[in-house]
Amino acid sequence: MKVQRAQQILNATHKIEVDHNGVAVWIDSVNEEQSTAKVHAEDCPADMKTVSVEELQEVQ
């Protein structure tokens, strides 16, 4: 995924499904300068991690 798309998903008013390594995640924030995003698994909000936005996949 590209940084711009991750930012669009973060700002969307409806849910857009995103996976990280096969796990459904929510995007909490996007760092455009570093091309990273803070994400957490949908079923575990406390398990937040920073990943490259290129590792994120939009589920179609």
Rank of each mutant, 00 (worst) to 15 (best):
M1H: 08
M1A: 08
K2N: 10
K2P: 01
V3Y: 05
V3Q: 07
R5H: 05
R5W: 04
A6N: 05
A6Y: 03
Q8G: 01
I9Y: 05
I9Q: 03
N11P: 02
A12V: 01
A12N: 14
T13L: 13
T13W: 04
H14G: 03
H14I: 07
I16M: 00
I16T: 07
I16C: 00
I16P: 00
I16A: 01
I16H: 01
E17N: 02
V18Q: 11
H20I: 10
H20L: 09
H20C: 13
H20P: 08
H20W: 14
N21I: 05
N21F: 07
G22R: 10
G22K: 08
V23I: 13
V23E: 14
V23L: 08
A24D: 12
A24K: 13
V25C: 13
I27A: 14
I27N: 14
I27M: 12
I27F: 15
D28H: 15
D28K: 15
D28W: 15
D28L: 15
D28I: 15
S29F: 10
V30R: 06
N31Y: 08
N31W: 07
N31D: 15
N31M: 03
E32C: 07
E32W: 03
E33W: 06
E33I: 12
Q34I: 02
S35D: 06
S35T: 02
S35L: 00
S35C: 04
T36W: 02
A37W: 03
A37G: 04
K38T: 06
K38W: 01
H40M: 09
A41S: 04
A41I: 04
E42N: 11
E42K: 14
D43I: 01
C44L: 12
P45M: 12
P45A: 09
A46P: 05
A46V: 10
A46K: 15
D47Q: 13
D47M: 07
D47I: 04
M48H: 08
M48S: 15
K49I: 09
T50P: 08
T50C: 13
V51E: 12
V51Q: 14
S52T: 01
S52N: 12
S52K: 12
V53M: 08
V53N: 06
V53Y: 12
E54H: 12
E54W: 14
E55M: 13
E55W: 15
L56G: 04
L56C: 06
Q57H: 10
Q57N: 13
Q57T: 13
E58V: 13
E58Y: 04
E58S: 03
V59R: 11
V59H: 05
Q60L: 09
Q60W: 09
Q60E: 12
Q60H: 10
